[in-house]
């Protein structure tokens, strides 16, 4: 008798009210959570959606974060040299953006995006990615800005005193040094982002977490599904940290 047939039999036994041994129980739960009725496909679809939201949000977040960090840093460092009305306005907008986004819960932002901003949209992945991207952008901006600020002010002065302009000094002197501070924090932000996406279940998007919820409600209990997705999240995070670690080491060894 194959494992599948055995598990089917166990299911019938359990429904009939007979008690199973712990090993048999475990097998039955596992079967029910991941195999029966091709349920693994739901998880697969869930992982797909989770990754889609996370990757799209990451791209949007980094682009937004870079832009905001550039405006804020440029404004703070060049105010004296080139005061500008437009730059002042842009800086103000960026400040409001980071303050509001970082000062309100992600869940609320997501709900606003889905039920106020894009009420009639059926592209839930798009809506979620937008909400997470906008959220992430504010944090990424602060990470990049902090990284740039953490480079000793004497470096900018030394570059400028040689006659390099602001952009050249940024590009050749400040940014290469800042990247070392920025990357680890950016890696953390990415990991947080990936895990945070689990709240997209509130707008009905079938991500990895939602898959576990659906299965759990269908099979009446069993922690198997939840433990299973927890493991998948953990695996994804570990792969990410490993990749970030490699990238950091690579950078460090090329510098010194």
């Amino acid at each position: 008798m194959g494992w599948t047939a055995w598990c089917e039999q166990l299911l019938i036994q359990a429904q009939g009210g007979s008690a199973l041994g712990p090993w048999a129980e475990l097998n039955k739960d596992f079967y029910q959570a991941f195999v029966q009725e091709g349920r693994w496909k739901m998880y697969l679809e869930g992982v797909g959606n989770t990754l889609k939201v996370a990757v799209l949000a990451l791209i949007l977040g980094v682009v937004l974060g870079l832009l905001v960090a550039m405006v804020r840093t440029f404004h703070d460092q060049r105010r004296e040299e080139r005061p500008g009305f437009l730059l002042g306005i842009l800086n103000g907008i960026c400040k409001v953006y980071t303050t509001v986004i970082r000062g309100t819960p992600m869940m609320v932002q997501l709900l606003i995006m889905a039920f106020v901003g894009f009420k009639s949209s059926r592209n839930l992945v798009g809506v979620a990615a937008l909400a997470f991207g906008i959220n992430s952008g504010a944090y990424v901006a602060e990470i990049i800005r902090g990284g740039l600020m953490s480079v000793d002010a004497g470096q900018m002065e030394a570059g400028r005193s040689l006659g390099l302009n602001y952009i050249q000094t940024m590009r050749h002197i400040i940014i290469p040094q800042a990247v070392k501070n920025i990357l680890p924090a950016l890696g953390n932000e990415l990991i947080t982002l990936l895990k945070e996406t689990s709240i997209v279940t509130v707008i009905g998007l079938r991500d990895l977490t939602k898959a576990a919820q659906l299965v759990t409600s269908k099979t009446y209990g069993g922690f198997m599904a939840l433990f299973g997705v927890a493991l998948v999240y953990l695996a994804m995070v570990m792969v990410l940290s490993w990749l970030m670690g490699r990238l950091e080491r690579r950078l460090r060894s090329s510098e010194r």
């Binding site: 004497g154 470096q155 005193s161 040689l162 006659g163």
Partner: peptide
């Protein structure tokens, strides 16, 4: 000013060499 700074070298108390 960048053009003129090229002709004015500056040495700082804390060296400010580029560490990378």
């Amino acid at each position: 000013i960048d053009l003129h700074r090229q002709k004015m070298g500056m040495v700082f108390q804390h060296f400010n060499l580029f560490p990378h």
